[in-house]
């Protein structure tokens, strides 16, 4: 019913703003996520401690190269630490580094989407020149930043320090593919742990609950795999372990013997399926508005 429409003579004022095209639209989201992580209580000491494994491995490289200086401590050893691809594999498959990655992500990544859902911030993001993929990339950049600091940076430092301490390029000529393996391994961890954290963060509005989930789900898969192995005594039960699948692929990257007696292609498939499922879940979960049904 129209109760009377007034004819209004109003001029149209031109817009004085500027249309700006930015290549990395996701970068402000990433920056905010990293800033917020460092504001969390106890995050800074945890983050500092998480570099301890890398530090010990670096000390290991130094000791291995200066074995003569340490003869007094290790009389019987000729080469008690071999800095070769196996050394790198040992770092990346080390339980402590995985634990630190999980703890850092539990603190820094649990609230990435959960807090947006809780604070209804998604409508603010999506009423700006931002697509869903920009939002997800921005959020993904936060775990990527932290995981790369714990994987890519130490891997690179290991190679550089090995070259410095040994005083020759023999190591790199012997294993010219090693830098690529470090990059590949880092990409694997960044991709896996990034999607893993974001998917869990999108599963709840409660970031504390997500924080527990980030650590729990990973170790639950280890326990489940262990139980299944006891029951079925099959190596394929390793496919149920997230860590087991990661270790299989890590072994391939560094040309080492795989921990399970099955093709690493299976592990690659399992992780790929999980990644696709994670992406679909994220895209479905992230909406500008809450849809009431």
């Amino acid at each position: 019913m129209d109760v009377g429409t007034e004819v209004r003579e109003k001029g149209y004022t031109g817009w004085e703003g500027r249309l700006i095209q930015r290549r990395f639209k996701w970068s402000p989201i990433a920056r905010t996520g990293i800033q917020l992580a460092f504001r969390k209580k106890r995050f800074k000491p945890l983050f500092a401690i998480s570099f301890l494994p890398a530090f010990f491995f670096l000390v290991g490289i130094y000791v291995a190269e200066r074995l003569e200086d340490f003869r007094a401590f290790f009389r019987e050893a000729n080469s008690f630490i071999a800095v070769d691809p196996g050394f790198f594999r040992a770092y990346y498959s080390n339980g402590s580094i995985i634990l630190f990655i999980l703890l850092v992500l539990a603190f820094a990544g649990s609230g990435l989407i959960a807090d947006d859902l809780k604070n209804n911030s998604l409508q603010l993001y999506f009423s700006r020149p931002l697509r869903k993929k920009d939002y997800i990339l921005g959020k993904l950049a936060v775990p990527a930043f932290f995981v790369s600091l714990l994987t890519f940076v130490p891997g690179l430092l290991f190679i550089i320090f090995k070259l410095i301490f040994s005083g020759s390029f023999r190591f790199i000529t012997e294993y010219p593919w090693l830098p690529l393996a470090v990059v590949g391994q880092s990409v694997l961890y960044i991709g896996f742990f990034g999607l893993y954290t974001l998917s869990l963060s999108a599963a709840s509005r409660n970031s504390r609950y997500v924080m527990v989930l980030v650590v729990l789900v990973y170790f639950f898969s280890e326990i489940l795999s262990g139980i299944l192995k006891l029951i079925f005594r099959s190596p394929y039960t390793g496919l149920f372990s997230l860590g087991g699948n990661l270790n299989q692929i890590t072994a391939v990257f560094f040309s080492q013997k795989t921990p399970y007696a099955f093709s690493p292609v299976w592990s690659f498939l399992v992780l790929s399926i999980l990644a696709v499922a994670g992406f679909i879940f994220l895209f479905r979960k992230i909406r500008g508005v809450e849809v009431i049904k």
Partner: peptide, 21 residues
Amino acid sequence: NPVLFSRLGFCPEIDSFYEDI
């Protein structure tokens, strides 16, 4: 059509803040 949103300002009804910033 995200490009359009440069010319549009939206003030939602409910609070949408991060409280710690």
